[in-house]
Design a protein around this nucleic acid. Structure first.
Lengths: 333, 333
DNA sequence: CTGAAAGCGCTTACAG
DNA sequence: CTGAAAGCGCTTACAG
C-alpha cells in the first residue's frame, strides 16, 4: 500500500495524492474530496522514512534531559515538562524522542542527534554550565531551544519563567500586606534562577522605597536544610516576612521560625517559589509562586517549530508569567 | 556528505562502503581498514531515513506506557523500567520512542505505530484488560512484547517476574523461621499479579503441609488503606505472620498490628512485595521481595530484538527471578 | 490545477 | 570480494 495504489484508486497521479496529504492548496475541491475518501477508506498513512528522505524533514524532535532517570522522576518538575512537550508535539504533528543523560551514552547521543538526520530539532532542559551538547549544537547551527535560561548567558534561544518579575510580585504582595522588614533566602549563588529571583526581591523593595539591609538577605541552596540554616541567621535581624526562592527552602524556614517560638504569619509571613505539591499541605499552607511548567514545555516546542518553519535569525527568548498562589502563610486573611 | 563521498575518498564503490558500515563479512580486510579510516576521519553517519527506506527497518522501538505522565512519575517502578529499556536499546543499537497514554492521543498513536512505518516493534507496559492497542497489534501481527503477564491470558509474548515462586519463597522463609499461622493479604482480585502471588502463598503452605485457613486470607487492593483493613480482619484469626502482596499493603498491615498492641516481629512477622524505597525505612524495616525492574525492561528489549531478527514463531515468555530482601520485620535476627 | 520525472541516500540482489 | 544498477516510497520543481 503506497501512494501509487491510492493514486490509481482515486484516478489521479501520485503527485496529486501527495498534494492532498500535505494540504497543498493547489488541488481542485472535487479531486481533493475523492482522494480523501480513498485515504479514509484505506486508512492509508504515508511511509515516514520515504517522506523524510524526500523532504529532508523527519518531523521528529529530540527532548534531552541531562539527568539520570532516577533523579528525573523524583522531581515533579520534569513530568509536567515532558507532558507539555509531548502535548505540543502532538499539536504540531511532531514525534518526540526522549533522551536522558546516562553518561555512557552521551557522546553517542550527540553524534546521533547531529549526524544521522533522524532528529530535526532539539529541546534541552536545564543545561549544565559546560554542556558539550549545547556547544556541538551551536557549532553545527542545529536548531534547538533551551528550557530555562542558560547560566553563562550564551546566546541561545530559550524559554523560561519570568523569575525577576515573579519574585518582585511576591515581595510586593508582602509589602501590600503591611510588611516592612522583608527578608529573602536566595537560591544557589551564581545560578541564573537564584540571581533573577534576588533581583526581583530588590526591585520589589525599591519600588516601595524600602532600604535593602544586608542582615535581611541570606544565602540558600534550594534545599530545605539550607533554608533552615538561612532562616536561623535571618531571625537575628527580626524580619516580619521572608521570601524564599524555593518551596523547599521555605519549608526549612518555616521550621526555623516555629522553633524560635514565633507564629506564621502573625510574626513572620512566608512566601515560597515553585508551588510543589507539598506547599498546599504545609502548616500553615504556603503562599508561593506557581510556575506554568507544562506551558513551558509547550512554549519550547512552539518556538522550535517556528524556527524550523521560518528559520528565525536571532535566538528568540520567551518568558512566561507565573501565578501567585495565596494561602495562609503570608497572612492575607 | 553521503555514501558516494566516502566511496570516492576511499577509492571504492558505494556498495562497499555500505558493506563496511553494516559489518558485512564480504570485504577484504585492507579495504575495510581504508574505508573505516575515512569514516572515522569524516565522522560520517549514514542517513537514517534513507537506510530505513532501503532496508525496511528503522531500528526504532516504541515504548508504550498506558498511564498519564503524572501517575507515571509517582511510581518508582516506571523510571526503572524506562531505564532498563533505554539501556538495552542502546546495547542493541535501537532508538526508543516513548508514548504515554494521554487519552486524546491514543487512537492517533495506534495508527501512527501501525501504519507509518516509523516503529519496528513495540514494548507495552502494564496493559489494561481490554487494551485496543494490543488487539490492533495482534491483528496486524505487529512485533511487540508486553511487560507483565496479560490478565486475560491472551496469547502474547511477555516478560514478567516469577510472582508465583517469589511469593512461595517469601512464605517458605516465614515457615523456616518457625511461623505456622501465616496469613496473606492478596492483591486486587482478578489481576494476574494478585492471583499469582496468592498461588505462591498456597504452594508455600502446601509444601510444609500446613492447612490453608479461610480466616488467614484477606482481600487487599494494593493500597495501604486496603492493607490496613485486611489486617484488622486477619487479626481475629491470630496469625503469627503475614505475607502482603505489596509493600503498600504491608505498610497498612504494620499499622493495624501496632494499633492492636502487638509487636513486629515477635508477635506477628511481616513480609511485603516490591521493595519500594520506603520499605527499608519502615519501623521495623520491611522484609520484602525485590523485583528486578530494570532487568525486566532489558529482557523485554532482548526478546523483541530476537523476534525482529529471527522472526520467532510462538509467542515467547520470559520469567525473571526475584530476590528476598531480609530485614527485621520477619524476625530473622 | 495536474502529471511525468528526477531525486532524496541508502541497501541489496545480481553478475562477475 | 566488488561494482553497476534497481528500487525503497515519497516530494517537488518543471512544464503544461
Amino acid at each position: 500500500m503506497n501512494l501509487e495504489t491510492i493514486a490509481q484508486m482515486s484516478g489521479v497521479s501520485r503527485s496529486t495524492v501527495s498534494r492532498v496529504i500535505n494540504n497543498s492548496p493547489n488541488v481542485r475541491p472535487e479531486v481533493r474530496e475523492r482522494v480523501l475518501a480513498v485515504l479514509r477508506e484505506t486508512n492509508f498513512h504515508p511511509n515516514v522514512a520515504a517522506r523524510s528522505l524526500a523532504s529532508g524533514a523527519t518531523r521528529i524532535l529530540g527532548l534531552v534531559i541531562p539527568l539520570e532517570v532516577r533523579q528525573l522522576f523524583m522531581d515533579p518538575y520534569f513530568p509536567l515538562l515532558i507532558q507539555g512537550v509531548m502535548g505540543a508535539c502532538n499539536t504540531h504533528d511532531y514525534s518526540v524522542m526522549l533522551w536522558l543523560a546516562e553518561p555512557e551514552y552521551e557522546r553517542r547521543m550527540i553524534q546521533q542527534i547531529l549526524h544521522s538526520g533522524l532528529i530535526n530539532g532539539v529541546i534541552v532542559s536545564s543545561i549544565q554550565s559546560d554542556d558539550p551538547l549545547i556547544d556541538a549544537l551551536i557549532e553545527r547551527s542545529f536548531p534547538f531551544v533551551v528550557v530555562g535560561r542558560s547560566p553563562e548567558g550564551k546566546h541561545v534561544p530559550y524559554v523560561d519563567v519570568d523569575n525577576v518579575s515573579s519574585a518582585r510580585r511576591a515581595v510586593e504582595h508582602l509589602i501590600g500586606l503591611g510588611r516592612r522588614r522583608i527578608a529573602t533566602i536566595t537560591g544557589v549563588p551564581g545560578t541564573t534562577v537564584g540571581a533573577d529571583r534576588l533581583d526581583g526581591y530588590r526591585l520589589g523593595l525599591r519600588g516601595a522605597k524600602l532600604a535593602e539591609q544586608p542582615g535581611l538577605i541570606a544565602e540558600g541552596d534550594f534545599t530545605q536544610e539550607g533554608g533552615y540554616r538561612a532562616m536561623k541567621a535571618l531571625l537575628q535581624a527580626h524580619p516580619d516576612a521572608v521570601f524564599a526562592a524555593s518551596d523547599s527552602m521555605a519549608q526549612g524556614a518555616v521550621r526555623a521560625i516555629q522553633e524560635a517560638g514565633l507564629n506564621i504569619p502573625q510574626d513572620v509571613a512566608v512566601v515560597g517559589f515553585d508551588d510543589v505539591p507539598f506547599a498546599a499541605h504545609m502548616q500553615p499552607p504556603l503562599t508561593t509562586v506557581r510556575q506554568p511548567i507544562e506551558q513551558l514545555g509547550r512554549a519550547a516546542v512552539d518556538l522550535l517549530a517556528e524556527m524550523l518553519n521560518q528559520g528565525l535569525e536571532q535566538p528568540q527568548h520567551r518568558l512566561l508569567t507565573t501565578e501567585l498562589i495565596i494561602r495562609s502563610s503570608c497572612g492575607s486573611e
